[in-house]
Design a protein around this nucleic acid. Sequence first.
DNA 1: GTCTATAAATAGATAGAC
DNA 2: GTCTATCTATTTATAGAC
Lengths: 203, 203
Amino acid sequence: MSTIARPSFKEQMLAAREEAIIQNVNRLLAEKGFDAMTVDEVAAAVGIAKASLYKHFPSKEDLAAAAMVRVMRRAQQFLAGIDPALPVLERLKAVVRWTLQMQLAGQMPSLPSQNSSLRAVLMASREYIDALMGISDTLGAWIEAGQRDGALDAKLPALAILYTLYARACDPVVEFLKAGGQHGDEQIVELVISTCFNGLSAR
Amino acid sequence: MSTIARPSFKEQMLAAREEAIIQNVNRLLAEKGFDAMTVDEVAAAVGIAKASLYKHFPSKEDLAAAAMVRVMRRAQQFLAGIDPALPVLERLKAVVRWTLQMQLAGQMPSLPSQNSSLRAVLMASREYIDALMGISDTLGAWIEAGQRDGALDAKLPALAILYTLYARACDPVVEFLKAGGQHGDEQIVELVISTCFNGLSAR
DNA sequence: GTCTATAAATAGATAGAC
DNA sequence: GTCTATCTATTTATAGAC
């Protein structure tokens, strides 16, 4: 029963090391993206040999996938912590705000948007797919409720709204404004949220 | 004087070949991005030896820069062809529509948004900087006019609007909707334009 | 300028001792 | 599991003949 009851000391050490690996991968993915990130860098950042890395994760793609699963799980936790009594619009804005803050903190991993070996690994990962579907289900329900009660534009397909929200997680506007140095982080977040929900046209 | 009057036959052949190279680079940059694109692929696509490529362009970065300059020049031409009598909003929508159509046609080169060797080459390219500044000046003037006459949200910094428009050129929403297969190209274009200018909230 | 052939560097991944 | 050392493939870039 001990194998179920609680992790042994050894298992805890293993989990801690893997968490350290994933954390570094997450940071490097945010800094340089998947293609530019090298396994040597990851090993150096964690402070172990490259061969040891491959004992934990079978490939570079699996490394990135683990980092993505971590982010998705955190997103799910954030969603679960949002007060369901809030208006739909406030809930959705809170989600976007969270992704923008992750990006500004340099912790939002960036993937290649094109076809690559990484996509195959992600699509084959049960954990990733589960998390993605869980998030999409939650957000999708919110979006449809928002369209019913008049908070969201009902003429837009719900999927288009969902993708538009997802896209904020890798919005280059954030890095442009950050590089400009004219605005603080909070200001950047509110600017992007404003253009996302209110658009550029005057109301 | 002939060196100024008109290009010789040889020079025309050279220009034609370089145009063919740039065209293929442009397509490959759109398909796979800078990091995933290889010089071997470019040479194979053009149908010449890799060493010949390096006689035309000194590095992979310069290849990509040439493709970027080409796109920027085309954008400038498009801007110049827009009827100045049109309302500002219509002019800006026309520009965004053009970038979205380029993306859907697989002709919008995608660069790494992070720091890379490519950025240094781009920033050192007089032609690229000139084109970028020309475009930014034109759009910037339109944006400020739009904010004055009440067409655009005057509370947003003009730079934030400019960057938001630029970001549409690499909007992942386009590829998501395209992959979904539920909407045609024209529909995708109008959806993105709607969310860009009107936002997600109901009006 | 174009080619073939090759250099030089770097990448992801593995062997095998401990 | 961790290490050192190495493999294998790929990539950018060049040498040198024509």
